[in-house]
């Protein structure tokens, strides 16, 4: 099968790979670009574990073809902690027991990050809506909702 070149910026670093046409962004990130932080829980768009941010928009990477991301900026949870300093969302998830098995966590954090970029001071309903495509089987969601709200509060305190 002819390979397709894909060039993208992954968490701030320019990367390029030749991939099989039809490869999902999820599998490209995990198997070709070596970023295993997005998880495959269903490969059919129902669990949200594969959520990443492409050019500012939240995307399910299992339903996104890698070849459509040529030239795109892709952000994943692996790129959040700059210089080892945790992002406020990571801190809030850590302090708030918002991760148990951790499998949904990278996708949840991406969904939360996309929300806070749009709505810096979200209501509880905004948060519930924003993570409605992300399944968590461990926490019962409440600690995750609280962690996202608390990250938003600490962001706005820092901004003030």
């Amino acid at each position: 099968m002819a390979k397709v070149p894909v060039q993208l910026t992954l968490n701030g670093t320019e990367r390029a790979e030749f991939i099989d046409g039809g490869l999902t962004l999820l599998n490209a990130l995990r198997d070709r670009f070596g970023d295993t932080s997005p998880k495959g829980g269903c490969h059919q768009g129902t669990c949200g574990a594969c959520s990443v941010i492409v050019d500012g928009d939240l995307k399910l990477s299992c339903l996104t073809l890698a070849e459509t991301c040529n030239g795109a900026h892709v952000e994943t949870t692996a790129g959040l902690a700059a210089d080892g300093i945790q992002h406020p969302l990571q801190r809030a998830f850590l302090d708030g027991f918002a991760a148990q098995c951790g499998f949904c966590t990278p996708g949840m954090i991406m969904a939360a990050k996309a929300l806070l970029a749009r709505v810096p001071n979200p209501s509880r309903d905004d948060v519930v809506e924003a993570i409605s495509g992300n399944i968590c089987r461990c926490t019962g969601y409440e600690p995750i909702i609280q962690a996202i709200l608390s990250a938003a509060r600490s962001n706005s305190q820092n901004a003030a």
Binding site: T36, L80, L89, T105
Partner: peptide, 20 residues
Amino acid sequence: QRSDVPNHVTGRTAFFADRT
């Protein structure tokens, strides 16, 4: 603090399928 959470929130926890 749970010992495994720091790697969960940074996406570094190695699940079996994260090995290629």
